[in-house]
Computed example of a mutant assay.
Amino acid sequence: MDPIEQARTVYRENFTSISDYVDILATKGIDWGLIGPREKDRLWERHILNCAALADLIPDGATVIDVGSGAGLPGIPLAILRPDLEMTLLEPLLRRFNFLGETVEELRLEDRVQVVRGRAEDCDETYDVVTCRAVANVQKLLGWCTPLFYPNGRLVALKGDSVSQEISDASRRLEAGRLDAQVLQVRAHPEAEVTQALVITPIR
Rank of each mutant, 00 (worst) to 15 (best):
I4Y: 15
I4C: 11
E5F: 04
A7M: 07
R8Q: 12
R8F: 11
T9H: 12
T9M: 07
R12C: 10
F15M: 00
T16I: 11
S17F: 07
I18C: 03
S19Q: 14
D20N: 13
Y21K: 14
L25N: 00
L25F: 05
T27Q: 13
K28A: 13
D31V: 08
G33C: 14
I35M: 14
P37D: 10
R38Y: 01
R42Y: 14
L43T: 03
W44P: 01
L49P: 01
A55P: 11
A55F: 11
L57N: 09
P59H: 06
D60P: 09
G61P: 02
A62H: 06
G72C: 04
P74G: 09
P77T: 09
L78A: 04
L78S: 09
R82V: 03
P83K: 14
M87P: 02
T88L: 05
E91V: 09
P92Y: 05
L100H: 03
L100S: 03
G101M: 09
E102C: 06
E105D: 09
E105A: 08
E105Y: 01
Q114S: 11
Q114P: 00
Q114Y: 08
R117D: 07
G118V: 08
E125A: 15
V129G: 00
R133P: 01
Q139M: 15
Q139K: 12
L142A: 01
W144I: 07
C145L: 07
P147K: 00
L148Y: 10
P151S: 05
P151Y: 00
G153W: 01
A157N: 07
L158W: 04
K159S: 03
G160L: 13
S164K: 12
S164H: 13
E166K: 02
I167K: 05
D169K: 06
A170M: 06
R173A: 13
A181Q: 00
Q182K: 10
V183F: 12
R187Y: 06
A188N: 02
P190K: 09
A192F: 04
A192K: 01
E193A: 15
T195P: 04
T195K: 12
Q196F: 03
I200P: 01
P202G: 01
I203H: 05
